[in-house]
Each structure stands twice: as C-alpha cells, then as structure tokens.
C-alpha cells in the first residue's frame, strides 16, 4: 500500500478544512445552539419527559446525528467533486494508488472533520442540558461508524455528481427528510401505528436510536439491529465505491 499517498491526500484535505474551519465549525455550533434555545428551552419546557429523559436531553443525540450526516456528506462529496470539477483529479488517477488509498485519504479526512464537529456539538450541548452518557465507548463507536459510513456515502455522491446541483440534491431531498423523520426530535412510539411501520424503513432511524441508547439506554429499536444496519450500510457503500473504481466510473475512460 502507498502510505505516503494516503498521508498526502489526508493532509491536503485537512488543510482545505482548516482554511474553512470557521464556517465549518461555526455553522453547526450556531444551529445547535438555536435548536436548544427553541426546542430545548422554549418549547421543550412544555414537553413532558420521554421515557424518563427530559426533552432537551432527548434531542441531543438526534441533533448530533443531523449535523454528522449533513457534514459528512457535504465534506466527502465536495472533497472529490471539486478535483473532478477543476480537472486536478487527473493527478490522483495517474498516481500509483488503488481505490483503497483514495478512500482512506479522502473519506478518512471527511470523517475526521465530522468527528471533530460532532465532538464540538456534544460539548456545546453539555452547556445547555445535563448529559450523562451511559455507554461512552458505544457512543464513540456509533459516532465513528456514522462519520465513516456517511462520508463514504458522500464520496459516492461526489463521484456521481457532474454538476453542483446534483451535489446538493441528495443531501437536500433525501438526507434532511430522513433525519427529521428518523426520530431526531421524537420517539417513534409517539407516531400512529402505520407511521411507526413506515419509519422502520428509514435507515437513519436505526442510527439515531442506537446512538440515543448509548446515552440514555432508551431506544426505538434494539441496539443489535442498529449495529447490523449501520454495518450493512457501510459495507454497501464500500462495495459501491469499489465498483465505481473498478469500472472507472466517470473517472477513467
């Protein structure tokens, strides 16, 4: 394996992140604070506790997931879309590297950035609500797995998109609804029966549920199912990227 190449891509991507650090960190922090002011304090004080967890605390895992998913996707998709757009991708394609190095470099950097943002949001949240994390190791595990899988997913979008519109399309039309309807702000027990069943088709539900369990030991679905789902999603993304590189998809004629 070409370790130097992985390092080079990773460092290069992190450098790009550093240049836009303020906006990458400031925007999720500000939106999180706003969510807490509105949902946690203003509305949340009138909402009763869910499964014994105050509403303000209940939404923390969902909020972190919301940011992680959107950030992972946008970072990773932009990371590969931009070189395609400017043409500099020729260098990566002519380098002595396989898809493994490309993934480790680009997706690794995007996931790292998401992880940093997730941690910052967690710290911000702790100023507003009391957070007792029941299973810190599992919490970290879900956090890392989510960052990696959705960065992979973002990478696929970046490879697929051939214009800026497509780049925005999936996050906007698919991810945001899935996160909002995946139990970020409520437990699916609150939904009518039919909608509960429909919600089970939403992959993001399993992520949020598992993540929330690691905090409060309450979950919509069993933790095992959550773990299986996130693993399946990650493997599916890996296979997709592998296939894309194997066939040269939009990268190599």
């Amino acid at each position: 394996m070409n370790v130097e190449a992985v390092k080079a891509i990773y460092i290069n991507e992190m450098r790009r992140t550093r240049k836009t650090l303020m906006q990458s960190v400031a925007s999720p922090v500000i939106s999180t604070v706003l969510y807490f002011v509105v949902f946690g304090s203003a509305i949340g004080s009138r909402i009763e506790a869910i499964d014994g967890v105050s509403y303000g605390s209940f939404i923390v895992p969902g909020l972190i997931m919301l940011s992680l998913l959107t950030q992972s996707i946008s970072n990773a998709s932009f990371g590969i879309f931009f070189p395609k757009f400017t043409g500099t991708v020729y260098e990566v394609m002519s380098a002595p590297i396989s898809f493994v190095e490309v993934i480790l470099g680009y997706v690794g950097a995007a996931a790292t950035k998401s992880l940093i943002i997730g941690t910052i949001i967690l710290i911000t949240a702790s100023f507003f609500v009391e957070l007792n994390i029941a299973h810190p190791v599992w919490m970290l595990f879900f956090l890392v797995m989510t960052c990696i899988s959705f960065s992979l997913f973002g990478f696929i979008i970046g490879l697929w998109a051939d214009n800026f519109e497509k780049l925005q399309l999936i996050p906007l039309l698919v991810i945001t609804p899935l996160v909002f309807l995946g139990g970020s702000f409520y437990s699916i027990d609150m939904l009518p029966d039919v909608w509960q069943k429909i919600s089970l088709l939403n992959p993001v539900l399993y992520l949020i549920s598992g993540f929330r369990w690691s905090f409060f030991e309450v979950s919509d679905v069993s933790v095992t199912v959550s773990l299986v789902m996130i693993s399946v999603f990650m493997i599916a993304c890996l296979l997709a990227v592998y296939a894309m590189f194997k066939t040269g998809y939009k990268l190599r004629q």
Partner: peptide
C-alpha cells in the same frame, strides 16, 4: 490546478501522492 492551493503545498502533495 486546485483553486485554493498554495504552490509549495500542491507540489508536496504530488510528491506524496506518488509514494
């Protein structure tokens, strides 16, 4: 060339990329 790249950084990047 990448839009925001600094000359020395982009050359170092190329070196690493090729192992």
């Amino acid at each position: 060339l990448g839009a925001f790249d600094v000359v020395v950084d982009t050359v170092r990047f190329s070196r690493g990329l090729f192992g």
